[in-house]
């Protein structure tokens, strides 16, 4: 287990978006994270956004919520994010990865629409995931800047 920060456990919530049944990448990412010492709460394929929120309620120590979407329907599947955030839920970095629009090219406009929903980070390639989590973790641990 990672003891770099004096903690016994780093935990993330992982799953695939509601309309998407692609299991392979999901399992590979879970394996990769476990290999790096993370505890992975894997909600698997076809997971509604509300289930991610419920999982975070059950595991409030989770560092981030990782959502995969390979079928191009990410925007549709994540459309309830603003509503859940307004209700005080899913208050952790939401990281989205995969193929994020219908068709082979994802445009800047596609990505902006996802950010407008409240998606915090978009990763085209799972290879950068652990680095991103380490950066988010470090940022979360930095002391509040002192003013005065």
């Amino acid at each position: 287990m990672d003891t770099l920060h004096g903690r016994s456990e780093r935990l993330v919530i992982l799953g695939v978006a509601e309309s998407d049944a692609h299991a392979v990448a999901n399992h590979l990412i879970a394996m990769q994270l476990r290999e790096h010492g993370f505890t992975v709460v894997n909600l698997g394929v076809c997971t509604p956004l509300a289930d991610f929120a419920d999982a975070l309620d059950r595991h409030p120590r989770a560092e981030a919520v990782l959502i995969g979407s390979l079928n191009g329907h990410a925007h549709q599947d994540l459309r309830a994010l603003p509503e859940l955030r307004a209700a005080g839920r899913l208050r952790r970095p939401v990281v989205l990865g995969g193929n994020l629009s219908v068709g082979s090219r994802t445009t800047d406009a596609d990505l902006q629409r996802l950010r407008d929903l409240g998606v915090d980070h978009i990763l085209p390639d799972a290879g950068g995931l652990v680095l991103l989590l380490d950066m988010l973790d470090a940022a979360a641990r930095e002391p509040e800047p002192q003013h005065g």
Binding site: V24, L28, I29, M31, Q32, E35, A126, G127
Partner: peptide
């Protein structure tokens, strides 16, 4: 290789 790279290559 990382596990994910190795598994992807196998796939």
């Amino acid at each position: 290789r990382s596990l994910i790279d190795a598994a992807t290559a196998d796939i």
